[in-house]
Nucleic acid binder design. Structure first.
Length: 659
RNA sequence: GCCGUAGUAGCGUAGUGGUAGCGCAAUCCCUUGGUAAGGGAUAGGUCGUGAGUUCGAUUCUCACCUACGGCACCA
């Protein structure tokens, strides 16, 4: 199909072709299709490229008109919303400079340069102003300027950040300027026809500091965050989701369930594990102990500190020094709290001679480490300064490294399956060899190590994304990434391939040929640290741990004091039930407080105890327990032995009976 | 570390320039109750720490500590 030169033919998604005069706009096309679409149209895709509805189309094209029904509309709304935020702020606070304001997940933000800080009280005022702008329906206009003209213009009106931004665009490129009424900004577009189409399902959420161009060396700007949706219903759902997420926040549940605490007198980022939390920690340790034994790991134990010389040798001080605590002067010599366990383990490997026959050698330690994390980055148990890592180092020959890495990945799979963890992704972290202060300068060794990891991942069929500049200084790594309840992303497990240790610690093995050969070291921590992993599990289970992890697994509730003896007998019986896969027998208690049974059931439920065993006259007479789950489900009375079999099975299999 | 906000009993909160209330939890008493909050009484705080202003500060100012929201960092 061809059109006359003055005409363009546009093809709709359903294949239908329409012919218009050259320079037709998306708005006109939508109107030609129907009045409903004309009204609902937001922007138009022209051969996949986003056009404003008022931008002329000069060529034949496949088109698609985007309305609020299309998922892409959310990002467009948020982008327009960011402009409207900037308009509102500049109207209310003259002299404020604009910088950038993109759409992000769930919303948008805009960074401003202003001497006076914004305060939370400013947000409602800005929201009001935004609503006015939206209501006014100011028409949008797009202009194309030469870059230099734009730079001069924005300099001239005192928008120095904007001018700097435009100046970094190649000189020969034109830039697009968008006008909304009298307000204008450099922008790639696209934008809606007027300031009305965005709707009013938005809310400004927070104020924050943010560095210009994301660099701490630059000036700090003020960022205003907002959320925006297609309609009020979506906005309300989003706000509701946030509230629900807050209920899962491990910091809140950690306090309520008495899992851990912090004390200012101990220090920021140094958690104190309470008895309930320690149960989870011990069960995880026990799990790791057993799983690692199956995979041929052997345990070691090493101190939390070492002489500074060790960390020069390991290269931690030059490459990782900022992350370490200041030295402790001991008898005139500097000691350091260790930030990682590897140097100690390397010394264990190096303490004896190793034949190729012994490799791989896998040594494991739940090792306590201390890192001087930036004070502003600390967050509950997710980001701490003192933590205990599920660490191990695998010393192997080069030809074994790939298979060992695969084996480590399979260990992850076993854990994640057991814990029902599905929401995570893997990231291959590469070095940025332009930043040699952060990565050891051994280009070929980096490439070799990367090749091994890629091969291992491909062979085991595991998908991953890549992240530049996030490798360890001594080698590339595979991280397992998760999101916390409040949406922050964390590394939950980290696994590195280390080519450096063989040199720095002179680690080698004696080959078949009788000569020394270098080793690869795999650093792996599938369960990450107790701190972060437990934080994650708290949020993952919303505090309702499966029976094997639950601090209290069952609570006996006598209906009245009269049945105290029988309740005690039930407690004693359960307490003595051996649990093969557990760190101890069953964890049970009794609530004989002077409260009504209903109240005591409610208390147990709030503490998320898996089982409530109600005992009264009937149970005492029949040797049964009335079993109630924390979900509220009533399993009715059953012989005590039946219940014992059930709970023992759950504790030992580490899997709850599905309800 | 940087920007902003905050810090009142175990937890959640009210409040004031003249030495603090409430709810839940705690303790005791009454009730002996059959599956999500029975009733009553009592105790508990010098209002994060230090300094300053003031006749007098929990309330104002400053510094520090800690937390929260971001940024940066997170090998």
């Amino acid at each position: 199909m061809s059109a006359a030169p003055e005409q363009v033919t546009v093809t709709l998604p359903d294949g239908k072709a329409l012919t218009f005069a050259k320079g037709v706009t998306g708005g006109e096309i939508a109107a030609a299709i129907g009045p409903g679409l004309a009204k609902a149209a937001l922007i138009i895709l022209v051969n996949g490229q986003e056009y404003d509805l008022f931008r002329p189309i000069d060529q034949d094209a496949k088109i698609r008109i985007i309305t609020k029904k299309d998922p892409e509309s959310l990002e467009l709304i948020r982008h327009d919303m960011a402009h409207i935020l900037a308009m509102a702020v500049q109207a209310l606070y003259p002299g404020t400079q604009v910088t950038i304001g993109p759409a992000i997940d769930d919303g948008f933000y805009y960074d401003f340069a202003r001497a006076e800080p914004f305060t939370p009280e400013d947000l409602p005022k800005i929201e009001e102003e935004m609503k006015k702008i939206i209501k006014a329906g100011m028409p949008t206009r797009r202009e194309v300027w030469a870059r230099d003209k734009a730079v001069e213009h924005f300099k001239g009106i005192g928008e120095t950040y904007k001018a700097e931004l435009i100046a970094s665009i190649p000189a020969n490129e034109d830039v697009s300027i968008y006008w909304h009424g009298d307000w204008h900004d450099l922008c790639r577009g696209p934008h809606f026809r007027t300031t009305s189409e965005v709707g009013d399902a938005f809310k400004l959420t927070k104020i924050a500091g943010a560095y210009w161009r994301g660099d701490a060396k630059n000036a700090q700007l003020q960022r205003i965050y907002g959320t925006a949706w297609r309609d009020k219903k979506e906005l309300d759902e989003y706000l509701h989701r946030l509230e629900e997420a807050e209920k899962r926040d491990h910091r809140k549940l950690g306090r309520e369930l008495e899992l851990f605490t912090f004390a200012p007198d101990v220090g920021a980022g140094l958690p104190l594990w309470m008895p309930n939390g320690m149960v989870i920690r011990q069960e995880l340790e026990f799990l790791a102990l057993n799983e690692e034994r199956k995979d041929g790991y052997r345990r070691v134990a090493t101190p939390h500190i070492a002489k500074e010389a060790l960390y020069y040798r390991s290269r931690h001080l030059p490459y990782y020094g900022e992350g370490m605590y200041a030295p402790l002067d001991i008898d005139g010599e500097n000691y350091r709290l260790r930030p990682m366990n590897c140097p100690h383990h390397h010394l264990i490997y190096g303490a004896t001679r190793h034949s190729y026959r012994e490799l791989p050698l896998r040594i494991a330690e739940y090792g306590q480490d201390y890192r001087y994390e930036a004070s502003g980055g600390l967050s509950g148990l997710m980001r701490v300064r003192g933590f205990c890592m599920n660490d191990a180092h695998i010393y192997c020959r080069y030809d074994q490294a790939k298979d060992e890495f695969i084996r480590v990945m399979k260990l992850h799979a076993r854990y994640y399956d057991l814990l029902d963890i599905k929401e995570y992704y893997m990231r291959l972290s590469l070095p940025d060899l332009n930043k040699l202060d952060k990565f050891v300068d051994e280009p070929q060794k980096w490439l070799d190590a990367l090749a091994i990891i890629r091969q291992a991942m491909d062979e085991s069929g595991m998908k991953y994304v890549e992240g530049k500049g996030e490798a360890a200084f001594y080698g590339p790594k595979i991280d397992f990434m998760i999101k916390s309840a409040i949406g922050t992303e964390y590394t939950i497990s980290t696994n590195q391939l280390d080519f450096l240790a063989t040199t720095t610690f002179d680690l080698k093995y004696i080959g078949e040929d009788g000569a020394d050969h270098p080793v690869y070291v795999i650093h792996r921590a599938p369960l990450g640290t107790h701190e972060r992993f437990t934080a994650f599990l708290i949020e993952h289970y919303a505090g309702a741990f499966p029976t094997w992890l639950a601090p209290i697994q069952a609570r006996v509730i006598p209906i009245s004091e009269k049945f105290g003896d029988y309740a005690q007998k039930v407690l004693d019986t359960l307490f003595q039930v051996p649990v093969v896969n557990g760190t101890a027998g069953l964890r049970v208690d009794i609530d004989s407080s002077n409260e009504r049974m209903q109240k005591r059931i409610r208390d147990a439920q709030l503490q998320k105890i898996p089982y409530m065993l109600v005992v009264g006259e009937r149970e005492a007479a029949e040797g049964t327990v009335a079993v109630r789950l924390r979900s509220g489900k009533d399993l009715g009375a059953m012989p005590l032995e039946t219940f014992v079999a059930r709970i023992k099975n759950e504790a030992e299999s580490r899997r709850d009976v599905a309800e």
